[in-house]
């Protein structure tokens, strides 16, 4: 169903963008590109439409289109891109298509952040490390998404240090009232501080969740509280009125 050379106007998918913000400097540090069907379908609905063989190609084309679309919108910040599930161990040509798209659209490689879900990393960690090193040597940033979801997070940091982690929603939800989660997140903040890994607090929905993280010194956030994803545009950001 997905044809690589299909002109942009007839593609069955495009992207929504959701900002990652720095609440201290009150600015957008990155936009995460989220794949959407032209009818506004979610990523999950888009994925189940494609057969397994088509996935790898779809994955590659996704990143290319995300880069094109972000460039057209006048991207000035970083750009967070996703790997689709099961495609992260693909060969170097995956890297090549992303690099070519970035160069063609004049987006510097060091403003690209590739998100890999923690749950995807439980398998072949050695193969993964090799692939990641190729990205690192190009200056592309690596982010571990859903960090804490698979309960392998901390041991993952022992062998591999990304540039960024995004806290899993399960750690974020109602954290202001959940002591065990607070303890884990504090420990993570220390470990990531020691290793130069940035933490993005993702999926923040309430002011109480936000305030807890602010009191702990976190400054990078993403979530409905600040901005919902907007289809083919960079949405307006609502910065919280008060500072911790």
């Amino acid at each position: 169903m997905i044809v690589l050379k299909q002109p942009e106007s007839t593609r069955p998918f495009s992207f929504a963008f959701q900002p990652v913000i720095d609440v201290v400097d009150r600015k957008v540090v990155s936009y995460e590109a989220l794949v959407r069907g032209l009818g506004g379908e979610s990523a999950h609905q888009m994925l189940t439409r494609n057969s397994a063989e088509e996935l790898a190609q779809f994955d590659r084309e996704c990143r290319v289109v995300a880069i094109q679309t972000a460039a057209r919108l006048g991207l000035k910040s970083h750009l967070n891109l996703n790997f689709l599930p099961t495609t992260i161990y693909s060969s170097s040509e995956v890297i090549l298509s992303t690099v070519q798209a970035a160069e063609k659209n004049e987006i510097p490689l060091d403003s690209i952040v590739l998100e890999i879900s923690e749950v995807e990393l439980i398998g072949d960690q050695t193969g993964f490390a090799l692939l990641i090193n190729e990205y690192k040597s190009l200056g592309i940033n690596i982010s571990i998404d859903d960090f804490g979801k698979g309960y392998s997070g901390l041991s993952l940091l022992a062998d591999f240090q990304p540039d960024q982690i995004k806290l899993d929603m399960n750690l974020v939800r109602r954290i202001e009232a959940r002591g065990a989660r607070q303890a884990i997140v504090r420990a993570l903040a220390v470990a990531c501080g020691d290793l130069g890994v940035d933490i993005v607090v993702e999926g923040v929905e309430t002011i109480d969740e936000y305030m807890w993280f602010r009191d702990e010194g976190f400054r990078w956030f993403q979530g409905y509280l600040f901005a919902r994803p907007a289809f083919e545009e960079f949405p307006e950001v609502h910065y919280p009125e008060f500072e911790a």
């Binding site: 720095d22 910040s77 403003s111 940033n141 130069g196 940035d198």
Partner: peptide, 21 residues
């Protein structure tokens, strides 16, 4: 720190200056 990733070197230099390691 004007960019999301100031670079690992800079971040760890800061961490050391702040008392880590």
């Amino acid at each position: 720190c004007t960019r999301l990733r100031a670079g690992r070197s800079q971040k760890l230099l800061r961490a050391f200056a702040a008392g880590r390691w």
